[in-house]
Nucleic acid binder design. Structure first.
Length: 279
DNA sequence: ACGGATGTTGCAAG
DNA sequence: TCTTGCAACATCCG
């Protein structure tokens, strides 16, 4: 689930719920989730104030007093959840932050793919993944010049290229398919064959679509209720993702699903023709 | 019943 | 150096 809009939704929710709270103690139920020996992790966090929650791409940056930052990535299914003391702990709860007001901030993750790195504030950019992360998909950060430059230098096909966080931060499988459909670009189009017009259209759509998804509190794909906060509503606005065999909302042609770089990829063969490439 | 797919990323192997 | 494929883990679907 969590691509940039979902992570941003979590960030806003966490800000409301735990900004200004103090960590009394921490339980580590699954040690592989963190970058330090559990005892060091727990000791370092005891008594720290949660000052602010930031985000960079799909990474949450939990700012703590004494110059500490937890870099948290939800990967596929990570969720934060605030529970009262004594609420039953499920088998997918891996880290529990006991807050001094009696509430608990719990990290839940069925697949255990999520990771938390506790680092000194200011060194978070050395965490793997943040070291090479590309610009945020905003008007200011994601410039036409930058896109033109990276697109001209690669012969990769566009879909996997968009999923590579070192090119642009924040797009995942769902929004990559959506922005390509919106931009009428074939997922298998090599990036160095895109016209300037296509690059500009793609840029606009990336920025607008992610903003729109944030406004809709993100996309909830699996139907089980999100433990945390509001369930997203944006799944109702998806045009191609998960719609294999359904008519394209623009032209009525059946949406096709193929596999590209091991990822399910949905597109309209009519609206998104492959241009100038022999196949 | 079991093989394959599922939203992500890091790293190994080529 | 760059690119590709898989592993990490659990569940669900057909």
């Amino acid at each position: 689930m969590p691509e940039l809009p979902e992570v941003e939704t979590v960030r806003r929710g966490l800000t409301q719920l735990v900004e200004g709270s103090t960590i009394q103690s921490v339980d580590v139920l699954y040690a592989k989730m963190i970058n330090l020996p559990p005892n060091d992790f727990k000791k370092a966090l005891r008594g720290k104030l949660i000052e602010k929650i930031d985000r960079r791409g799909k990474y949450l940056l939990i700012r703590l007093s004494d110059n500490l930052t937890i870099v948290s990535h939800l990967r596929m299914e990570g969720k934060y959840d605030v529970e009262p003391e004594g609420a039953p702990v499920g088998k997918y709860t891996h880290i529990i932050f006991h807050l001094t007001d009696g509430r608990q901030l719990r990290y839940n993750d069925t697949r255990k793919f999520g990771r938390m790195n506790l680092v000194d504030t200011g060194t978070e950019m050395q965490v793997a993944g943040l070291k090479t992360i590309g610009p945020e998909p905003t008007e200011e950060e994601l410039t036409v010049d930058y896109m033109q430059k990276i697109f001209s230098k690669s012969r990769k096909v566009i879909k996997p290229f968009l999923l590579d966080q070192s090119n642009i931060a924040g797009l995942g499988n769902i929004y990559a398919d959506e922005v390509l459909w919106l931009s009428k670009i074939n997922p298998q189009q090599p990036v160095n064959t895109l016209t300037l017009g296509q690059i500009k259209a793609l840029r606009k759509n990336i920025i607008a679509e992610l903003a729109k998804a944030i406004a809709g509190h993100g996309t909830t794909v699996h139907s089980y209720s999100t433990a945390y906060g509001e369930a997203g509503s944006f799944q109702n606005q998806l045009n191609v993702y998960g719609r294999e065999g359904e008519p394209c909302p623009r032209c009525g042609t059946k949406i096709v699903k193929i596999k590209l770089a091991q990822r399910g990829t949905h597109f309209c063969p009519q609206c998104q023709p492959l241009r100038g490439v022999k196949k």
